[in-house]
Write a protein that binds this DNA or RNA. Structure first.
Lengths: 228, 228
DNA sequence: ACACGACGAGAGCAGTGCTCTTGTTTTCGC
DNA sequence: GCGAAAACAAGAGCACTGCTCTCGTCGTGT
């Protein structure tokens, strides 16, 4: 085995072990030493592969974003042929919900509190944009199909018009301002629901998370004008 | 100074210092030893006042919930006399938004990722319920005033009806199911917006957070049927 | 007055991220 | 093919962390 191959394999072993530890104990309790022990190295040796704990964390963040992004895109593609935009939107929402519930620590790493002293580098941006991009691409298709919004939107202020200016170039989508407002609200509701649920704020209030999520996402689809 | 007085004062000094450290470095980096140093004690002495780091954290969580709860209630009370429900709702939303921006680490402690290995005890529940309670009390008043929802809600499924069963006893409010669905969605949108903003997910997309928040909350008020 | 309990200090344990040095092994240029 | 250079693993060490245990000291209720 060549040196380059070996390096790749060990890097993968470290990241894989880190991933499993992350799922077990969460990002804040991730121990580089414990990872090294399991891989069969001494802790200092890990620094040959990742310059710091933060760099390892960045790799895990990108991996998680890409996994969630792939899940979302797969869910969309799975119903694209025989489904209308409402079905596709619901599939995307459920993909986010299910992935988050299956990987609560990874979800917390992505959408929970930022790790203190850690600032995500720009390398994470493209992977992060996959999820929001997949959602807003449905919005764009909806507009191109000429579907009106299900619930009307108030007049968009000029400040808000300016504020929205960054979304189109960042995610490479185009649509009217009022549609973007509704879809951004749906985006916030979706992640608000998932975060509040996963972080325990629905405890003893909502008795059936899945039923409530179903109701909320169907309502979002109706507000967006997706239900035929 | 009697022993009991002294104990109270030192307890407060520890919690106050902890609070300042929390605002500086965030919950995960909270160091009991550093707090002890600043108070002028050795770390082991702190354990006379808080049985563990987790117990200190619990005290901070309750303090933060109560502070946010008080801010929300004050915002509501401030416009109650001369304002309709729309103004009160907007005041409450802005209170949450502003408190979160002024105290990002405290907000993260409350609504961000749970601290690993820490489970919030039931003592935090009443304080946590103040915020959601203040919001849903507006919903109740809106219903009692006979205001219809601004955006209609789909038929509430029987599963969802059951799922909502815990909200009324937990927060001591009553309202119809469809109204509760809309208000819970508004609750999710509000905290979704704040979390996504504070945790960096609107970076380079939304160029003016305040303008967008204004637009979104006004839209929520309209959907809830609050705007006269 | 005295015994008990509260208290602060200190040492110590097991763990952390990270750095530096040391010895070994692989790779590459001549 | 050989020697220099780079890559690598290991270990010791530093400054931390939460937490426990012990040991004197001092305030307080009986």
């Amino acid at each position: 085995m060549s040196r380059a191959e070996n390096r790749l394999e060990i890097t993968r072993a470290i990241q894989g072990t880190a991933r499993r530890h992350l799922a077990d104990v969460g990002p804040a309790a991730l121990s580089l030493r414990a990872i090294a022990r399991e891989v069969g190295m001494v802790s200092s040796a890990v620094y040959r592969y990742f310059a710091s704990r933060d760099e390892l964390l960045t790799a895990l963040i990108i991996e998680a974003y890409d996994e969630l992004g792939a899940a979302v895109e797969a869910a969309d593609a799975g119903v694209r042929r025989r489904g209308d935009l409402a079905k596709r939107f619901l599939a995307v929402c459920h993909a986010v919900h299910e992935w988050a519930r299956a990987h609560p620590h990874e979800y917390a790493l992505l959408y929970g509190s930022p790790v203190p002293g850690y600032a995500a580098p720009d390398t994470t941006v493209p992977s992060a944009a996959r999820i929001t991009g997949a959602i807003l691409r449905l919005a764009q298709e909806s507009e191109r199909a000429g579907h009106p919004l299900g619930a009307p939107v108030r007049t968009v202020s000029t400040q808000e018009r300016r504020a929205l200016g960054g979304v189109r170039p960042a995610l490479d989508v185009t649509m009217s301002d009022d549609r973007m407002v509704r879809w951004l609200m749906a985006w916030q509701t979706l992640f608000g629901h998932v975060s509040l649920e996963l972080f325990g704020h629905m405890h003893r209030g909502i008795l059936d998370y899945d039923a409530h999520f179903q109701q909320v996402t169907e309502q979002l689809a109706a507000d967006l004008g997706l239900s035929g």
